[in-house]
Amino acid sequence: MDNALFVGLSRQLTLRRELDIVANNIANADTVGFKVESLMVETEPMRPAMTSPGPRPVKFVLDRSVGRDFGQGALRTTGATFDLAIEGEGFFRIGGAEGELFTRDGRFTMDPQGRLTTQGGLPVLDDGGGEIVIDPERGRVTIAADGTISQGEERVGRVGVVDFQELAVLEKQGDNFYRNTSNAEPQPAAEAKVRQGSLETSNVNPILQITRMMEVTRAYESMAKMMDSAAELSRRSVERMGKVQMQ
């Protein structure tokens, strides 16, 4: 019986983790550039908790990682000069305090020094890794599909859009940023197009996520009932053995 309880507990732990992930997806359904996540689980054979008749080895359920769907979200037109969206694969380059960060969230602005920055004040980097500085006195800013920034006839810079051969190297850092956890160098996203005056919406499908939340909740409840039944059966077995010995 102990084995059934331990296996059930391992499954409950993964279901709790999955419920948190699904809830986070729903909470970020309206977050610009957010990518839907899912829990990756696997079974791992282990020795039984006690020597008794039954399957060997016992397979426990383990939480291995979080998968992320980097599929394109819909583009929403805002008309704002510094709202940018990437059509296709790729990420904007952002200058972080501890190295470069990457994001699909193109809600940019211009700080008092004329730098193109994120809403949190981090600099948006150009294709060479430098900061982008704009002079507001030079007139209207236009950003072409290849990321080239112009004011009138003058080229100011080019928004850096890069991609990775393996997206698994990107680790979530919060605030819609990702960090490169490997030595792999990002490459220019040649096929990507920058859309000025637009933002990429989340690729979360709220209906699917709410449905999944209901499924996970029911699975958790079913597992709890199974564990209660196993514990009750074990208790009754002990009581009967005690009565037999007393006789």
Rank of each mutant, 00 (worst) to 15 (best):
Gly88Met: 09
Asn183Tyr: 03
Val66Ile: 15
Val61Arg: 11
Thr109Ile: 04
Gly174Val: 15
Glu137Cys: 02
Gln113Gly: 14
Thr117Asn: 04
Leu170Thr: 00
Thr78Glu: 06
Gln151Leu: 09
Leu122Phe: 12
Leu122Lys: 01
Thr117Val: 15
Gly73Tyr: 05
Glu185Lys: 04
Gly99Lys: 08
Val58Arg: 02
Asp105Leu: 10
Glu100Asn: 06
Gln165Trp: 03
Val161Phe: 03
Phe92Met: 00
Thr103Ser: 15
Thr81Met: 11
Phe102Tyr: 15
Glu137His: 08
Glu87Asp: 10
Gly152Glu: 13
Pro55Gly: 12
Asp126Ile: 11
Ile94Gly: 08
Ser150Asp: 05
Ile94His: 06
Ala74Pro: 04
Phe108Thr: 13
Phe92Gly: 00
Ser65Thr: 09
Glu131Gln: 14
Gln187Met: 14
Val133Asn: 03
Leu116Gly: 10
Thr118Ser: 10
Gly95Tyr: 10
Asp146Pro: 06
Gly71Arg: 12
Asp111Glu: 05
Arg64Asn: 09
Thr142Gly: 00
Arg155Ala: 15
Ile86Trp: 08
Gly174Ala: 13
Thr117Ser: 12
Ser182Arg: 05
Leu122Asn: 08
Pro57Asp: 13
Glu185Gln: 06
Glu154Thr: 15
Ala74Thr: 14
Ile132Leu: 14
Asp135His: 04
Arg76Met: 06
Thr77Phe: 01
Ala74His: 07
Glu171Trp: 00
Phe60Glu: 14
Leu101Tyr: 02
Asp135Gly: 04
Gly147Cys: 12
Thr148Ala: 12
Arg68Cys: 07
Phe108Asp: 09
Gln72Asn: 07
Pro123Asn: 13
Ile94Pro: 03
Ser65Pro: 05
Leu62Glu: 11
Glu98Gly: 06
Gly128Trp: 04
Val156Asn: 06
Asn183Met: 05
Ser150His: 02
Asp83Glu: 11
Gly139Glu: 11
Asp126Trp: 15
Leu167Met: 07
Leu167Phe: 07
Glu154Ser: 13
Gly106Arg: 07
Glu100Met: 00
Gln165Cys: 00
Phe108Gly: 12
Gln72Tyr: 05
Asp105Ile: 00
Pro186Cys: 08
Ile143Asp: 14
Glu137Arg: 12
Gly120Gln: 15
Gly128Tyr: 09
Asp146Lys: 07
Gly129Ser: 02
Gly121Asn: 09
Thr77Gln: 04
Gly160Ser: 07
Val162Ile: 06
Arg93His: 07
Gly129Asn: 08
Gly71Gln: 04
Val58Asp: 07
Leu122Met: 11
Ile149Glu: 08
Arg93Met: 13
Phe92Ala: 01
Ser52Ile: 11
Gly79Phe: 01
Gly129Asp: 10
Leu122Asp: 08
Thr148Ser: 13
Asp111Thr: 15
Val58Asn: 02
Arg107Cys: 04
Leu125Thr: 13
Gly71His: 04
Gly79Met: 00
Asn180His: 03
Glu89Phe: 07
Ala145Tyr: 00
Asp63Thr: 11
Glu131Leu: 09
Phe102Met: 01
Lys59Leu: 14
Gly54Glu: 08
Asp105His: 13
Arg115Lys: 14
Gly95Met: 12
Val124Leu: 01
Glu87Arg: 13
Val156Glu: 05
Gly129His: 02
Asp135Lys: 04
Gly128His: 04
Val58His: 07
Thr103Trp: 01
Asp175Ala: 00
Ile134Tyr: 03
Arg64Phe: 07
Ala145Leu: 01
Asn176Val: 04
Val162Thr: 03
Glu171Met: 01
Asp105Phe: 03
Ile86Met: 08
Phe164Cys: 03
Glu154His: 09
Ile94Asn: 05
Glu87Leu: 10
Leu84Asp: 01
Val61Asn: 10
